[in-house]
Design a binder for these strands. Structure first.
Length: 315
DNA sequence: ACGATTTGACCATC
DNA sequence: GATGGTCAAATCGT
């Protein structure tokens, strides 16, 4: 099977990149901590938060590696408890299933087929879906520094539902891989804005991508535009920072209605928070993490604005 | 015209 | 029966 080979290569690549990401973050954190302990250096650090973010990055990377290992080998490895921001959760079944085998009977976007087989198919798939690896990440949107947290989501997602969740102030949005029908990719994701901290979004991933949509190397070499991001809508957003800022400045207008709830109020700065575009350039080309529009309190949200953030703003 | 999003309805699970 | 997850028709945006 060619697909399986591809998947193995993909897995290996992902593992490598996750491990090196984690390692990198760990080194940075180590440097920070050692510097911080010396009294002379006062505050060359942005904030304590940054350590937190680095920590999240480390944990996220290693946890994902563990999940992947779990998932391609048996018996499953016992994961560390979820006491941290990035919480990998192995589904209760804990049955590893190789990505290649996840692809069951294709059900191309349910074009309406006969209900009998349709139902059975549905049940089959939902049962199968439960077996998929699952983990959560937290991402904070900070006016000062943009998006913080594990930022490795470069996949394109398509929203397929939204639901009010009991006890939660904000609705949960459901996304699945855009390439579900074309590449039989069953990765899904849930986005839930945190009650306690509206600037934090909980991303729950289920299943990993089996599609070939520009598997994200940690530091991707410049690729052809359409290869870099499979989502046409967004390639237009991923332009040079200055151009981007300019276009945003001119095109964004006020939109504050509906933000009456105190919890919904973001303290946007008057100046663009994205000072370091160089670091986010490629990694933020995802529909979800492309928060380059998070620039101004008066944003008339661009269509390319990450969908889950777009919606959440209005709540 | 086509792909993405919205949203009410449906289904499974607890 | 309540809740979370998904479907799919309608709608929207390009």
């Amino acid at each position: 099977m060619e697909g399986q080979k591809a998947m193995l290569a993909w897995e290996q690549k992902t593992l490598q990149s996750e491990v090196s990401l984690g390692l990198e973050a760990a080194k940075k954190l180590q440097a920070r901590l050692s510097e911080a302990s010396s009294p002379s250096s006062s505050s060359s650090y942005p904030a304590a938060e940054t350590n937190e973010i680095l920590m999240e990055q480390i944990l996220s990377s290693y946890d994902k590696v563990l999940v992947m290992l779990n998932w391609s080998s048996s018996p499953p490895v016992q994961l560390t408890p979820a006491t941290v921001a990035v919480v990998p959760v192995v589904n209760s079944g804990g049955i590893p299933e190789s990505p290649a085998s996840i692809n069951g009977s294709p059900r191309s976007e349910d074009g309406g087929g006969s209900s009998e087989s349709h139902r059975q198919d549905h049940m089959f798939n939902s049962r199968k879906r439960k077996m998929l690896p699952k983990w959560t990440e937290k991402v904070r949107i900070s006016p000062e520094r943009g998006l913080e947290g594990p930022q490795d989501d470069v996949y394109s997602w398509r929203k397929y539902g939204q639901k009010d969740i009991l006890g939660a102030k904000f609705p949960r949005s459901y996304y699945r891989c855009t390439h579900r029908s074309t590449q039989n990719c069953w990765a899904t994701k849930q986005v839930q804005r945190s009650d306690s901290d509206p600037t934090v979004f909980e991303l729950t991933y289920r299943g990993t991508h089996t599609c070939q949509q520009g598997t994200p190397p940690p530091h991707p070499p410049p690729a052809s535009p359409e290869k870099r991001n499979t989502r046409p809508k967004l390639t237009t957003t991923a332009q040079k920072p200055n151009d981007l800022l300019e276009s945003l400045k001119t095109s964004l207008t006020v939109r504050t209605e509906g933000l009456d709830d105190a919890d919904n109020v973001f303290s946007f700065p008057n100046t663009p928070p994205f000072c370091d575009f160089g670091t986010i350039n490629d990694e933020f080309s995802s529909p979800i993490f492309d928060v380059v529009d998070w620039l101004n309190p008066t944003v008339e949200i661009d269509p390319a604005f990450p969908t889950f953030l777009q919606e959440s703003i209005y709540y």
